[in-house]
Simulated assay, not measured.
Amino acid sequence: MDFLILFLGAMVISAIGFKKFVWFISLGYGFAIAGIGVALLVLFHGSLTPVTVVLSVLLIIYGCRLGGYLLMRERRSASYQNTMKHEIKDGSDMKFVLKVLVWVVCALLYVCEASPVLFRLQNGAGMDGVSVVGAVIMALGIILESASDLTKNSYKKKHPKRFCDVGLFRLVRCPNYLGEVLIWTGVFVSGVIALEGFWQWAAAIGGWICIVYIMFGGARRLELRQNKNYGDDPEYQKYVKTTPILVPFIPLYSVAKYKWLVG
């Protein structure tokens, strides 16, 4: 029942995608996750532990930061809007039934991503070392993602026509996506010893695998766009051949050829 409540809440919030299709996976995503965090605090107010409070609050912080950031970028950045027109369907030629399917699948994914926290609360699991480690990983992911966005925004204001290769972008070419992976890895880790039964494991693992897949797909999409924009730049060629695309210290420098990646 609690899973259903979170699912319905995520559907209500992400329904803004019917106004603008991309909002299903952008604004709807961020604010739905924040809504899930709020719902967890309300639904389980009598059985919260310090770590589940922290995890729920981190979901709210993550969702509000992401949703707010995307909202400001949409309003202020003409280049971003132009990029989205070319990279993501606007839904104008999509049948209503398909839009509803996208809406439902997105809302379900968002709840599955956050489900380890839900199941920890449902199963009455107390505070333990694993949940603390998960919360720390999640917090580090939020910090990394936020710092990456700030770095790139600041750099692009001064160098609008050059690729960003400063700060965290020296570690990996997509540090914001790495932050996203860390966030949801932290959420998953926080619940691993609290999960019970096939369906709880299926929801938790499915949510984590899906978001990691989406992040690699996003990295591929960004790589293709940057290859198009900067491919003739020798500095860019040196950068992409020496800086991993997503995972630090792992010599994976390109995912462009993996057409099965969609993000």
Score class of each variant (00 low, 15 high):
Trp199Leu: 11
Lys158Thr: 14
Lys241Tyr: 07
Leu246His: 01
Leu144Val: 13
Phe188Gln: 09
Leu252Cys: 02
Ser154Phe: 06
Gly141Tyr: 08
Pro248Ile: 05
Phe188Ala: 14
Trp208Lys: 08
Leu168Asp: 06
Ile209Asp: 07
Ser254Arg: 02
Gly207His: 01
Lys157Gly: 01
Ser146Thr: 15
Tyr213Thr: 02
Gln226Cys: 04
Ile143Glu: 12
Ser148Val: 04
Cys210Met: 14
Pro175Glu: 13
Phe198Ile: 03
Gly207Ala: 04
Glu196Tyr: 08
Gln237Ala: 12
Leu171Tyr: 11
Pro251Asp: 05
Ser146Arg: 11
Leu224Trp: 02
Ser154His: 11
Tyr253Met: 04
Ser190Ala: 12
Phe198Thr: 07
Pro248Gly: 10
Phe163Gln: 09
Ile183Thr: 10
Glu223Phe: 00
Lys161His: 13
Phe188Ile: 08
Lys158Tyr: 07
Glu196Pro: 01
Leu168Gly: 12
Lys156Pro: 01
Gly141Cys: 09
Thr242Trp: 10
Leu222Asp: 05
Ile245Trp: 01
Arg170Gln: 15
Ile142Tyr: 02
Tyr230Pro: 00
Leu182Phe: 11
Ser190Glu: 03
Leu144Ala: 11
Ile205Gly: 00
Lys158His: 13
Arg225Glu: 10
Ile143Gln: 12
Lys241Arg: 15
Trp184Lys: 06
Asn229Tyr: 03
Lys161Pro: 00
Trp201Gly: 03
Val166Cys: 14
Met215Cys: 12
Lys241Gln: 15
Ala202Gln: 10
Ile214Gln: 11
Lys228Thr: 12
Phe163Val: 09
Lys156Tyr: 00
Gly207Thr: 03
Lys156Trp: 01
Leu222Met: 11
His159Tyr: 00
Ile209Phe: 14
Glu145Tyr: 10
Asn176Lys: 10
Ile245Cys: 05
Phe188Asp: 10
Ala147Ile: 14
Pro175Phe: 14
Leu171Gly: 10
Leu224Ile: 08
Phe216Trp: 11
Lys152Asp: 10
Leu222Gln: 12
Arg170Ala: 14
Ile193Lys: 05
Tyr155Phe: 15
Trp201Arg: 01
Val247Phe: 09
Cys174Trp: 01
Glu145Pro: 09
Val240Gln: 09
Ile193Ser: 10
Arg225Ala: 12
Tyr155Arg: 05
Arg225Gly: 03
Cys164Thr: 04
